Amino acid sequence: MRVGLITGDPGHPVLAAAAELLVRRGCRVEAVPIGDGGVAAGALADVYLLKARTPQALAVAAELERCGAVVVNSAAATELCQDRVRMASLARGAGLPFAATVAAGKLAELASPAYPFVVKSRHSRRHDLVALVDGPARLRDLAERWPQEEVVTQPYLPGNGWDQKLWVVDGQVFAARRRSELAVAVGEVEAAPEWVPSARRAALALRVGEVFGLEVYGVDLLDGAAEPVIVDVNAFPGVRGRPGAPEALAGLALRAARERGRGRTAGSV
């Protein structure tokens, strides 16, 4: 069986560990060139894992799908998670407790908001803007540094400085607390406490996958007044340091190929 990796970093820990497991099962694992060369239909792998989220990677994934390839996650589902306005609209329309997310145009044009609030890049990507705005001075500072950035705003939910991160790989839920980006911005860094999500939070994470059509994804939660609030969804996140995640990812690759009739059964991982 052949597995293609659509990524700019084949050495990423979870991908590299999953690839090693697949190779041990007799699979051939190859990185897919991300460029303008097109895709040869006769050279399709049995399944592709779409880790990169750049426009070029999404174009490659979409072309592979048009040629009949199996891509996890799909190009369409991955692209949807890049637009925080579309993401929030889909989630709230499906009854998910997603934070109220308002398209605010360019950051330099944001006028007279109610403080405090959270501002984020509308288009999710590496090193995008995520910041707490607690007053006019902070807003001016951000606007000077990101004047042309298309942004969204979300209500600020006071917390304990720790984000609740849930990652799902083929229906298996992994979780950890991570220091909030808002807390890190003011220099507060310490070891993450161990955390096991409640059954309610795990079920919520699984429901996100059903709504968004994702098989490998992350869900960021904060505590709301009455229920957990989803503040972000990420397609194919890193899932670093979670025991069992590489095995789940390798198993997903095998299952996806097998169920769609392209790969030979290679056993479970």
Score class of each variant (00 low, 15 high):
residue 21 L to V: 03
residue 6 I to W: 02
residue 47 V to Q: 06
residue 260 R to W: 08
residue 105 G to Y: 09
residue 29 V to M: 08
residue 227 E to I: 00
residue 202 A to H: 02
residue 268 S to E: 14
residue 158 P to R: 05
residue 35 G to T: 01
residue 13 P to F: 06
residue 9 D to I: 06
residue 245 A to M: 07
residue 79 E to S: 13
residue 70 V to G: 01
residue 211 V to P: 10
residue 132 L to P: 07
residue 268 S to Q: 09
residue 170 D to M: 02
residue 215 E to Q: 15
residue 13 P to M: 03
residue 204 L to P: 06
residue 217 Y to V: 07
residue 220 D to N: 11
residue 152 V to D: 07
residue 169 V to I: 15
residue 61 A to E: 12
residue 86 R to V: 00
residue 170 D to K: 01
residue 126 R to W: 12
residue 252 L to Y: 09
residue 31 A to I: 00
residue 6 I to H: 02
residue 36 D to M: 03
residue 184 V to S: 13
residue 83 D to F: 08
residue 174 F to C: 09
residue 155 P to T: 00
residue 222 L to R: 12
residue 82 Q to M: 13
residue 175 A to P: 12
residue 247 E to A: 15
residue 13 P to L: 02
residue 260 R to Q: 15
residue 149 E to K: 01
residue 155 P to S: 01
residue 64 L to S: 06
residue 182 L to P: 04
residue 120 K to R: 14
residue 269 V to G: 08
residue 179 R to D: 04
residue 257 A to Y: 04
residue 83 D to Y: 11
residue 226 A to T: 00
residue 267 G to F: 05
residue 124 S to P: 00
residue 5 L to F: 09
residue 193 P to A: 10
residue 30 E to M: 08
residue 121 S to C: 05
residue 69 A to I: 00
residue 134 D to F: 00
residue 51 K to C: 00
residue 164 Q to I: 14
residue 72 V to M: 04
